[in-house]
C-alpha cells in the first residue's frame, strides 16, 4: 500500500469488474485502488487457502503470493475450490495459479513451490501487507505467528475440522493477542488435528477461508472490526457462532514484554491441508 495508489486510474473494465465493491460506502474507487496496490501472502492452498485466494483475487488484490509444497489429490477436491478433477497430481501452486490468473488478470500471482520453514519464511513474507494462514497444523501456524509478530506484519490464522472452525486476527503493531498467547501450550498430538483422520465437511474451510479474506480486506482499507483479541468459534452442526475474548500474555514467548523470537524454535512440519 502506498500513497501513489490514489494517483492510478481505474480503467473502464476495472470499474465494471469492481463496481459492486466501489458502490460500497467503505470501499469506493479509493479503496479499490488501494486493494490493487496491496500484497498478500497465502500460506497453504488447501480448503482454507483456496477459498481465501479465490475471494482475494476476485476482490482485486493486486499481488498475491501463494505457497504450497503439495500435489492435488482426489480426496482434496470436495473442499479445495481452486482444484478440479483434471488437476489431480498437479502441483497445487500450478493449479491455483491457472485458476486465479484466469479469474482475474489484474491479479499478479507469484507462486512458491515448497514448504514454509523457519529458514525461508521471513524472506517470503517480508514485503507483505497481510499474511493468511491456510495451513492445517499447529507447528506451521505457530511459525507463521512468530514470523509475522517478529516482522510486525498483520495476519489471520484459521482452522477447520469436521464441522467446526476457529479464527483469530493478529495486528502486531497494535500488540493484539497472538496465536501463541492462546494456544502456546497445546502440542501437535494433543491438538488431534488432521483432516484425513477426523474428516471435514467441505463448507467449513470455505466459510473460515472467506472470513480470512475479509479480515485482510478490512485491515487493508481500515474499516469495520477485526477479529483481534477474540476468537470466533463456528460450529455448523448446531449453528453456534461464539466469540471468546482472549488476552495478551505479557510472558508470551512470541509477543511478551521480554520476548526474543527465535524462529528455529517454532517448528514447521506440514501435514495434509485441511
Amino acid at each position: 500500500m502506498s500513497k501513489d495508489s490514489i494517483k492510478m486510474e481505474l480503467n473502464n473494465n476495472q470499474i465494471e469488474r469492481y463496481s459492486r465493491q466501489i458502490v460500497l460506502k467503505e470501499i469506493g474507487g479509493i479503496g479499490q485502488k488501494r486493494l490493487l496496490k496491496s500484497k498478500i501472502t497465502i500460506i497453504g492452498l488447501g480448503g482454507l487457502g483456496s477459498t481465501t485466494a479465490y475471494y482475494l483475487a476476485g476482490a482485486g488484490i493486486g499481488n498475491l503470493k501463494i505457497i504450497d509444497f503439495d500435489y492435488v489429490d482426489l480426496s482434496n477436491i470436495h473442499r479445495q475450490i481452486l482444484h478440479f478433477t483434471k488437476d489431480i497430481n498437479k502441483k497445487k501452486t500450478e493449479s491455483a495459479f491457472e485458476k486465479l490468473t484466469s479469474l482475474n488478470p489484474d491479479c499478479n500471482i507469484e507462486k512458491i513451490d515448497g514448504k514454509i520453514v523457519p529458514k525461508n519464511i521471513e524472506s517470503i513474507i517480508k514485503n507483505s501487507d497481510f499474511v493468511i494462514d491456510g495451513s492445517d497444523n499447529f507447528s506451521t501456524k505457530m511459525l507463521i505467528n512468530d514470523a509475522c509478530v517478529k516482522l510486525k506484519i498483520p495476519f489471520t490464522i484459521a482452522g477447520a475440522l469436521r464441522y467446526h472452525g476457529q479464527i483469530i486476527t493478529v495486528v502486531p503493531k497494535k500488540k493484539t493477542t497472538c496465536y501463541r498467547c492462546v494456544f502456546g501450550n497445546i502440542t501437535e498430538e494433543a491438538s488431534g488435528m488432521s483432516c484425513s483422520q477426523a474428516g471435514v465437511i467441505g463448507v467449513i474451510p470455505g466459510i473460515m477461508g472467506s472470513i480470512e479474506a475479509f479480515e485482510a480486506i478490512k485491515y487493508l482499507l481500515d474499516f469495520g472490526e477485526l477479529l483481534t483479541n477474540k476468537i470466533l468459534f463456528v460450529d455448523l452442526l448446531t449453528n453456534q457462532y461464539n466469540y471468546i475474548n482472549v488476552f495478551r500474555d505479557v510472558e508470551c514467548l512470541t509477543c511478551g514484554d521480554n520476548s526474543n523470537i527465535n524462529l528455529m524454535d517454532s517448528g514447521s512440519e506440514i501435514n495434509d491441508k485441511c
Binding site: L10, R20, I22
Partner: peptide, 13 residues
C-alpha cells in the same frame, strides 16, 4: 444502474 452511481462516486472522489 448501478453504474450510474459508480461513475458519479468515482467522479466525486
Amino acid at each position: 444502474c448501478p453504474m450510474t452511481f459508480v461513475y458519479t462516486k468515482l467522479a466525486l472522489e
